[in-house]
Every structure is written in C-alpha cells, then in structure tokens.
Design a binder for these strands. Structure first.
Lengths: 162, 162
DNA sequence: CCTATAACCTACTAAATAAGTCAAGTATTA
DNA sequence: TAATACTTGACTTATTTAGTAGGTTATAGG
C-alpha cells in the first residue's frame, strides 16, 4: 500500500466526478482545469480506474466519465490500489536471507501494518467523503469511525470549505 | 503523509533495534545484513531518526544505536515523518485556482483523510509492534484497536513467523 | 454527411524522488 | 593506538511521477 500524490490525484479526481455527475458525464478537461491536474495524466489515471470498473466512460460530445458504481460501493483503498501498480513484491522473496524465518520478522510486521492501513482505507467509502462534503461539521458517527482513540483537536471543520 | 518504502525501511530498521537492544547497541552493519538495506542508506535514515530523538547512538567499538525513548513513546507516524521531508505544501498554495474555495473542496477532503491516516499511525506504537511480535495470535484488544469495523479474515497470524 | 467534442491510445521526455555509492573524515574505547 | 563505528557531504543511478505530442475512434448535433 503506497500513499503518494498519485493516489491523491486519483481520489481527488474521482471525488470531483462524484460531486458533479448528477448533471451528466464529467469530462477530463473540466477536471483538469478545476483540480489543476494535467489532462494527459488524468487520462492515464482514468484508464486504470476504468479497468477496475471504478468509473465508466461516455464518448463523444458531452461525454466524459461517470462513477462505475454507487459511491457506497467505492472505497478509498481500491481507488489508490487501482492507480498504483500491482503492489511490488516483498523484499525477501527469493533472496536467501530470509530462510530461517528470523529475518522475516520485522518484514512481516510491516506487511501486517500495511494491511491495517489498507483495512482502514477500505472502511472509508466515497459516500463517506461525499457526506462529509455536505456536512458542515463532522458527525459523531463519522468521527468515531475515523479516529479511534485519538484527540479531536485537529479535526477538520469543513464549514470554511463550502 | 507519504507512505513509501523509505518509511517502511525506517520502521523496519528501528523495529530491528527495538527487538535486539537488550544485548546492547545495535550497529548499522548488523541491521544492514539482517534487513538487507544498504549501509549508507541506513546512515541517512538514522541521521534523521537521531535528529528527532527516536534513536540515540553509542560510538566506538561495540557501539551502535539504541532507542531514544521507550517503545511506548515511539509511534509509527513519527518514524515515517522523521525520514520524509517536511511534508510538501498543499497544491493550491499561492495558485490562483483556489480563490473561491470551491476548487479546494476535494483538496481539503484529501488533507482531512491524510490526517486520519496520520492519527491512525500515531495510535500504533513500537511497543504495540513488539507485543505483536511476541504474541502468537493477535489479542482481541489489539485487534479492536487496529481494525475498526472490518472483517478479520485477512488478519495476520504471527505464529508462522516466530 | 460533416464537424466539433471527448474518450482512447502510444510513445516519448522532463522532473522529482528514492535508493545506493564513495570517500574522507571524527569520536570512542578496548 | 588501532579498531570500530558514527558523521558528513558530494555523487550516481534507478524508479516513479508528471507532462507532451501526436494520433485514432466514437458520437451528438447541426
């Protein structure tokens, strides 16, 4: 699970579609100018997103992209995984230095941690983000789901954004 | 918050120290051979880790690195942030296309999401990982803390690693 | 039918970052 | 005082990200 600007672009772009698709397909050119991401880069990203059925396309004038399924059924993890390559293999695969299991320990702990992050991102859907964008203050339900045991002092107030 | 192999190297390496420091300082050469990370790259990483007081060094023969504080007081987020540069600025800063607040929407949602991930990683300490490495099966307490509402079918059984 | 629009596709390139190398130090202590 | 191990900085290389250029196909609307 990699978290880079690439995944962020993908999430941003698909959220842009989600927010506006009521009025029909959204063209990449529109997303490009709104989100300030180059058109060609968006083409690369949406090609992958489409391959994973996260979006569907409408060709021709007035065409563009629509969500491939309901926002409830699209989670953040799958968006990020869709645009990142097959998630490169474990470091030790094939190498001799993991034969006794001992040296694999931290390696697998990291993998485990990575799974936790992925689970976490899987638990957040596009619908959740849409909700947040329509909610002036974060609801308690969301809050609990997102934050676990931590202090809420840095919780984002979406008010100023809308 | 970026999640790349760089941060993974850092977590892996510092965990290696945590697991073995009972027998004294751990040299980078040892970590290098055990974890298969180049010595010089480790030097770069540990230089930053030390700057953030996550580790402390012991010079001279038999020297190496020790944790800078208790495993309970070191969380995963600070390890990753320590080796990644000051967390690059927001895309729209200074640019004209965010003036009306509208275009910033998804941008801030992403930032918010990033905060959630950071909160999550902040909630996991080195001590948690150490515990896990000593526990054959994941305890319920850990499980609840880590996973939220999700299915546990892909939960890692550490048994096979130890 | 024609034309503009927009998806789709391929190949390439520039920039940034990650990862690793090299070399010449300095401090510590057995 | 020699061995060990950290420190520092300048380099190189590889990979990934981001952007360009140049097309083709599909289709809505005049």
């Amino acid at each position: 699970m990699k978290l880079t600007t690439k995944g962020r672009y993908a999430v941003t772009a698909i959220l842009d579609v989600a927010l506006r698709q009521k009025s029909g397909p959204i063209s990449l050119a529109d997303i490009s100018s709104r989100q300030d991401i180059s058109l060609s880069y968006l083409e690369q990203l949406f090609s992958k997103l489409k391959k994973h059925q996260l979006v569907k396309s409408v060709r021709g004038p007035g065409g563009g992209y629509l969500l491939g399924k309901s926002p409830v059924d699209i989670n953040i993890a799958e968006i990020i995984l869709a645009v990142n390559e097959p998630l490169d293999a474990t470091r030790c695969r094939g190498k001799g230095n993991c034969r006794d299991g001992e040296t694999c320990l931290t390696h697998h702990l990291w993998q485990d941690l990575s799974h936790q992050i992925q689970n976490f991102l899987t638990s957040i859907t596009l619908a959740n983000l849409l909700e947040r964008s329509e909610t002036k203050y974060i609801s308690e339900k969301q809050d609990a789901q997102f934050e676990g045991q931590h202090s809420h002092k840095d919780t984002l107030i979406l008010d100023r954004l809308l």
